[in-house]
Design a protein around this nucleic acid. Structure first.
Length: 120
RNA sequence: AGAGUAGGCGCAGGUGGUUGCAAAUUUACCUUGAGGUAAAUUUGAGGAAAGUCCGGGCUCCCGAAAGAUCAGACUUGCUGGGUAACGCCCAGUGCGGGUGACCGUGAGGAGAGUGCCACAGAAACAUACCGCCGAUGGCGUGCUGGUCACGCACAGGUAAGGGUGCAAGGGUGCGGUAAGAGCGCACCAGCAACGUCGAGAGGCGUUGGCUCGGUAAACCCCGGUGGGGAGCAAGGCAGAUGGAGCCAGGUUGGUCUUUUUCCAGCUCCAGCUUUUGAGGCCGCUUGAGGCAUUUGGUAACAAAUGACCCAGAUAGAUAACCGCCCCCUUGUGAUUCGCCAGUCUUGGCUUUGCCAAAACGACGCUGACCACAAGGAGAACAGAACCCGGCUUAUGUCCUGCUCUUUCA
RNA sequence: GGACGCAUAGCUCAGUUGGUUAGAGCACCACGUUGACAUCGUGGGGGUCCCCCGUUCGAGUCGGGGUGUGUCCA
């Protein structure tokens, strides 16, 4: 579970990311990144939101499990990530068959594409 | 062994490691304060949390004074009990199903009224199509001239038989009759009255007149309940925003030389996305609470006593990943038990043999058990969202009682 | 979270108090018309009335349960 400052919580924030963020897609996930404006020397922390619609699965148990696995994968990658971004992960129905290792791999690939990780 | 049936105040993986989340409490530090940070401890989904099908608590609105009766509306429907209440639960009755354990039951009234019962059929609350009869009356013929015989099927009688249909108006049998008919009788079904048993639904018995179609998950009648509606996205508080009103008092502060004006002020209303925000705080978890013991009750359940506090999230916590145990399948090995050709001892008898008991037991079988290896599944259904009591639906596994069938003793 | 509605032919919809073979338009097929196509005319095929259980002689319709799908509430 991510700690509170790293969670994206408000509907307004989600809308901002959807409307103004850049998109990166893969087979199982859709990533949107929004660079928040900030003053020099006061960089806000990165915030991550995960969206799983009812189209993915009708059962809340399955949706919650997907969100928990993705959160765990994100928290593992969190120390390598640049601050000041808002990220929304949209889960696609193909994600139902993925394991934790596959999620981790997909996230690394997407974050590299979006140039969020340090050292790239 | 197989098949089935009922119940459970049965369980809902365990354990170790790494990385993490939420709440409460305590301690420390920071902060004017609200609060924040860190550490430790404790706690952290369900039997259905689900469907939202019922019943409540709680909150607001309308309305009224809610006590009684009537009308309307709503709801319910065998009996008795339980419950805060229920359409729920328990115990029983009737009916239906099953070989049985047992199961199902929307089970008041069609003998208050209205409607409907298509097609078929003559007729679906009132009837004669075919058929049967034609005793009685009518017409004709005959001669024995009658209380006659024969014929006709005109009046008429008839629900036995045929045919139609889900259904034709109690059923079967005997008598009876012109033919028939509860017309008479016996048994059965059903109805009513009486007696008796039962708290009651009803059970049993006797007698009676002989009999009445189905449908109320059609309208309805009878009985029963009791203001209506919305729902925690109810509703309340604070805050910033907009609009309207008040300048009574005061002239405090800012703008200004002064006055006027405007903004802060107070009241009301609206509504809350673009720098706290499609929501901050409360409601929000102590409750018809669960647990243990005893007592009452066939049971549902109730009472008393004791100790207990047991989720409160809000893009939504209670977890993610990796091992081991446990479970299943396959293979290998091992020897302990089991089965088996047979050997031997004892005993009995119908004595070249048979039977019974005990011991040993090759080659094997793999049945149980053990070890190792490989593979599979990580449990099934499923995630609290104001809270309780039920119902319904989904679902893995364990235990117990009972029934039927087959085989062996 | 809560409150409601809908499901009938490939598509859009009717279906009366339960009644006999469930209809309409578009689409599809065949034939006619045309040199050919379109239009037009005639005829035809196509239905798990979303699923299960019940009431009834008889259910698209009535009662109960389930599934799918959509709308509204700050």
């Amino acid at each position: 579970m991510l700690s509170k400052p790293h969670r994206l919580r408000k509907t307004k924030d989600f809308l901002t990311v959807y409307q103004q963020g850049r998109r990166h897609n893969s087979a199982v996930l859709s990533l949107r990144v929004y660079q928040r404006p900030y003053s020099e020397g006061n960089i806000p922390p990165i915030r991550i939101g995960i969206s799983v619609s009812q189209k993915v699965s009708k059962h809340a148990v399955v949706r919650n499990r997907l969100k928990r696995q993705l959160r765990a994968a994100c928290s593992q990658l969190l120390p390598q990530m640049k601050a000041g971004r808002d990220i929304v992960l949209v889960v696609r129905p193909t994600a139902l068959k993925c394991s934790y290792q596959q999620f981790l791999q997909q996230l690394k690939q997407l974050f590299t594409q979006a140039e969020i990780l340090h050292g790239h």
